[in-house]
Write a protein that binds this DNA or RNA. Structure first.
Length: 280
DNA sequence: CATGTTTCCTGACAGC
DNA sequence: TGCTGTCAGGAAACAT
């Protein structure tokens, strides 16, 4: 499941492959779930645009385009959900099942959005003003970027939350980009139990968590993300961070630090993995 | 507003 | 073998 490191890897891969390319034609399926913007509107708005930059905001892949004097600026926003993929492919390669969007590019290749479970979303971010290019508000997403937040702001974010720290970490309006894998892995590294109330964490614990979240995310980005189910990047490559997981999907296996079997519980409706000895 | 619960969707897998 | 049932999970919608 793509979280911040996987989305960053995908965005970088797509950028490398299609930056500078021009969208000659766009097609979107009629399935309503993935579309935050009507397919025809999206296709029309994207056709003729030149991709300038593909980057990540939270768990969103954001496409920037070269300015065009006669058109309002837009960004194309893609959320991969659980099973969404962005793949650059040659048109001769048959489109896989569950392809919901295709950008046909001047280079002859295609960018495809494929998503079996349809939890992914695509939409257009349309700018309000087209006259002041320098001050256009880019897509920001709801929460704070976990890789940029200071220790002080991190404490602030959680210290009044009357919910489990796991649920708080998953709340995208607080931190933007941490999902189930990296919540569990961060809590292990910070030695904090997932069910602890966020408001009851001490300052040293919150500081440890801040460091752990950033360390885990940075290391995961470095290794191309975690491939636990079927995640692959834009080139179809798997990530390697799953080899560094201490708890995620390791139920019953010995803790890599103390040997105690890893436990699985449900917190905030999510499968949650922790070491009962290392995490207090 | 804050928090908890339900819903969407299909592939994978267990059990008969 | 092949069917049925259950589960996974991000985030929006809905309920409390």
């Amino acid at each position: 499941m793509p979280e911040l490191p996987e989305v960053e890897t995908v965005a970088n891969g797509v950028h490398q492959r299609i930056a500078g390319d021009r969208i000659e034609e766009a097609w979107f399926s009629s399935k309503p779930e993935p579309m935050k913007t009507p397919p025809a509107t999206m296709a029309k708005a994207l056709t003729g645009r030149t991709v300038e930059r593909v980057h990540r905001v939270g768990k969103h892949v954001v496409f920037d385009f070269a300015p065009q004097a006669e058109r309002d600026p837009v960004q194309w926003i893609v959320h991969l959900g659980m099973t969404g993929r962005l793949v650059v492919a040659d048109p001769e390669v048959p489109r896989p099942p569950h392809t919901h969007g295709v950008l046909m590019l001047r280079s002859g290749r295609e960018l495809r959005f494929v998503d079996a479970r349809r939890f992914g979303r695509m939409g257009l971010h349309v700018f309000q003003k087209s006259d002041q290019a320098a001050e256009l508000p880019g897509f920001r997403g709801p929460g704070t970027e976990p890789l940029r937040i200071s220790k002080a702001d991190f404490r602030q974010l959680f210290h009044k939350r009357r919910t489990s720290i796991k649920a708080a970490l998953l709340n995208q309006t607080l931190l933007h980009g941490v999902g189930n894998i990296y919540a569990d892995e961060s809590l292990f590294r910070a030695k904090i139990r997932p069910r602890r109330m966020a408001a009851r964490l001490t300052i040293p614990e919150l500081d440890r968590l801040h460091s752990a979240v950033q360390k885990v995310l940075r290391e995961a980005i470095r290794l191309g993300g975690s491939s636990v189910s079927d995640y692959v990047d834009a080139a179809g490559e798997r990530g390697f961070f799953q080899l560094r997981h201490y708890v995620y999907i390791r139920t019953g296996q010995p803790c890599l630090v103390c040997g105690t079997p890893i436990r699985r519980i449900v917190v905030a409706g999510r499968g949650t993995h922790y070491c009962p000895v290392c995490q207090r």
